[in-house]
Write a protein that binds this DNA or RNA. Structure first.
Lengths: 136, 136
DNA sequence: ATAATCAACTTGTTATTTGCAAGTTGATTT
DNA sequence: AAATCAACTTGCAAATAACAAGTTGATTAT
């Protein structure tokens, strides 16, 4: 597989080397905030990721320790993708992206109230979502 | 120019449509945290962005209202790239990326202490850096 | 038990984006 | 007036993404 090129020792640059693309954080979002855990569930998301790109991102995220494959509790045909702590700890990044979008972008109106709630209670909600993610 | 494809109304997805690549946030970083403001200064960064990609990202970031071109105070040959409020408000995203990298990635040792300080005093430091950014 | 379907991929092909080298144009310095 | 600088643009090969189709090992339906 590809050897993940590190461009510099800068923490921001190094983070972007791993999750700096249009798809990786959407997979993390789907697991963390949308209760998805399988290949087909990820495929069904509104953004319509291509199958080969999904397969590639899943293996990249696994290789970098953000998620891990497990056997699915309900079927041997399925694979259960679970976030590691490293993956769960990306939640604050997602939250800041949501807050920024809520302020500056023309997002779904239905999504706005959640952003407002987040704005008021950021730390508590992050804590809560992380606790839920770790239990599952 | 290209018409910025919006994949869905999800706030995370919409944010990634704009800044979800390996370079855009590094330009924001350079302005916000490294005191850079010109094309050549961005080119000199450790990550070695290609000239055509830099030109493309600058025009994308300008088109999406994250930065604005101004005349340079010292020379008519230079262009002064300044972050808008929309750009400055990406700082919390950068900060969370730094914190995540500090915990999980093998970054420059010299950068670690700053991450530790950030961890303790996140909100205050963000406020301070934003104030500085707005003054300039 | 056999066929059809499902889940997770892989493969091939085309379109788009990136990386790299070189060239252009309008200041500015020598 | 010539060389240099700053901000780009252009051309081209290489890498990545999008799209369509095919493969393989479960599972479900007949």
């Amino acid at each position: 597989m590809k050897p993940l090129k590190v461009r510099s020792g800068c923490p921001i640059s190094s983070a972007l080397d791993i999750i700096g693309d249009k798809w990786s954080l959407l997979i993390v979002r789907d697991i963390l905030m949308n209760g998805k855990n399988t290949y087909n569930e990820f495929l069904k998301s509104k953004e319509k990721i291509a199958t080969n790109v999904l397969a590639d991102r899943l293996s990249m995220l696994e290789a970098s320790g953000i998620l891990a494959k497990e056997e699915h509790p309900e079927s041997k045909a399925k694979i259960f993708y679970r976030l590691t702590d490293k993956g769960i700890d990306l939640l604050p990044v997602l939250v800041e992206l949501i807050l920024w979008s809520n302020t500056y972008l023309p997002i779904d109106e239905a999504a706005r109230p959640y952003g407002e709630v987040l704005k008021r209670d950021k730390d508590a909600i992050i804590k809560q979502l992380m606790a839920i993610a770790r239990k599952k």
